[in-house]
Design a protein around this nucleic acid. Structure first.
Length: 412
DNA sequence: TGGTTATCGTGAAGACGATG
DNA sequence: CATCGTCTTCACGATAACCA
């Protein structure tokens, strides 16, 4: 077996990681005019059966100070999967945006796509980080019961300088993360299929993925509930329109093999309501397992280490043998020093500096330098200053302030 | 007249190619 | 590899067209 090249061809299915209760309902309206408004409050409800087989109602509330787009869910599920597929998963993901977007299939070396993807990503991240979610009957897979919960999704910290090759840090809310990670229940799905769908179909796909992976053969819904509360269509639309929209969504899922074709998914009124019935499609027969490749470049540590100038073999060794948190930390210190202090900072080379420090730190006899701690503090301060007042796109908050610290940060 | 259906406009978002 | 222009799709309120 040779040294893996920096590549990203289609070995290994890209996966997404969902969450059982969250896919029961829409997190925001599909219509961006409504969902991307500031201080969005989205109230929703869905039904579940408790352990006595009684049907109960769960009330959901999503607060999104910067709004929330239906397409943000793609990043949420994708980043969760990236986090849990690391060699030693923790609730923190250190990765460059380039790494994330490449892993998620948003950019690749053939289809040339650029700046907009990065901006969308940063904006979504900003919106997601501010969301607070509450649910009075959230299913807790660890304890096997429904609980009242309130949590956020994630926090982030990223270099102010857009050109920086230092990794972004994404930290998941501990309670949310625990729900997502809980052992055998991990909710995985094919991210490529997900991506190929429109937002409404994506939501239904996830819900069906959840239902059909339990060996269920069919799923039933009430039309209006499905359209409004699960998919996120506007409640103000007449039932007829919703039916049309649902039919379109179902047709898409048929095309992807997620549900079986049927001449009539929606059957006539019963008790004043339309019933929707779908059957499990071929997709679930063929794609039970999703795994990420163990390719070296699929480690988020790869890019920072490569940016320091380490060889493939050395990177492999660090990824395999050292605590990823430690490696990430010293990679960040080294890159920060390269960007802000220049070459003269290093007695020999950045590589030597990094290698020596990680080894010493692993022994427990070296801690991060003070200048780096201060740098981090000042970066956090700026971020806090930049955020609540104005919804400035993340990458663009202040670069001048830091200009004074170092003269040669432009060159990387 | 009342109700249904078709179409337009707007802003978000994705696909894809050209270019630097 | 990043960036941008352009074309298409989507949701859905508003308006117009249609029909009994």
């Amino acid at each position: 077996m040779g040294i893996p090249k920096r590549q990203n061809h289609k070995n290994g299915v890209k996966i997404g990681l969902g969450e059982l209760s969250l896919v029961e309902h829409a997190l925001c309206p599909l219509d961006s005019r409504r969902s991307l408004s500031e201080n969005l409050v989205h109230s929703n409800a869905y039904f579940y059966t408790d352990h006595n087989r009684h049907q109960r109602n769960a009330q959901v509330r999503v607060n999104a100070p910067l709004g929330l787009s239906a397409s943000d869910e793609f990043y949420l599920w994708g980043l969760l999967a990236l986090t849990c597929c690391q060699q030693k998963p923790t609730a923190e993901l250190f990765a460059t945006p380039h790494y994330c977007l490449r892993q998620l299939g948003c950019i690749n070396q053939h289809g040339k796509r650029g700046g907009r993807q990065y901006r969308k990503f940063a904006e979504s991240l900003e919106r997601l980080s501010l969301v607070s979610y509450s649910n009075d009957a959230f299913y807790d897979p660890v304890r096997g019961e429904h609980r009242k919960v309130g949590f956020g999704f994630l926090s982030y910290s990223l270099p102010v300088n857009k050109r920086s090759s230092r990794a972004w840090k994404i930290a998941w809310d501990p309670i949310f993360f625990e729900f997502c990670m809980s052992g055998s229940q991990q909710f995985r799905f094919d991210l490529e299929v997900y991506r190929s769908l429109d937002c409404a179909s994506r939501r239904l796909f996830l819900l069906l993925q959840k239902m059909f992976s339990k060996r269920l053969e069919e799923a039933r819904f009430e039309l209006r509930h499905l359209a409004v509360h699960v998919l996120g269509f506007s409640e103000s639309l007449p039932t007829k329109t919703l039916m049309k929209k649902c039919k379109k969504t179902l047709a898409r899922l048929v095309d992807s093999g997620i549900i079986k074709p049927s001449p009539q998914f929606i059957t006539g009124k019963r008790g004043g309501n339309y019933r929707v019935r779908v059957e499990r499609g071929a997709y679930f027969a063929t794609r039970a397992e999703f795994r990420l490749s163990k390719d070296l470049t699929s480690s988020p540590l790869y890019e920072p280490l490569a940016a320091i100038g380490l060889e493939e073999l050395a990177i492999r060794r660090f990824v395999r043998d050292f605590d990823p948190v430690l490696v990430q930390e010293w990679a960040d210190i080294t890159l920060a020093a390269m960007e802000r202090k220049g070459k003269k900072f290093f007695r020999r080379s950045p590589q030597a500096y990094f290698v020596d420090n990680v080894q010493q730190a692993a022994q427990g006899n070296r801690t991060p330098p003070d200048w780096w701690q201060e740098l981090r503090h000042s970066e956090n301060r700026e971020k806090r200053m930049g955020q609540p007042a104005s919804p400035t796109p993340v990458g663009e908050i202040i670069t001048q302030v830091l200009g004074g610290i170092s003269g040669d940060e432009a060159k990387t």
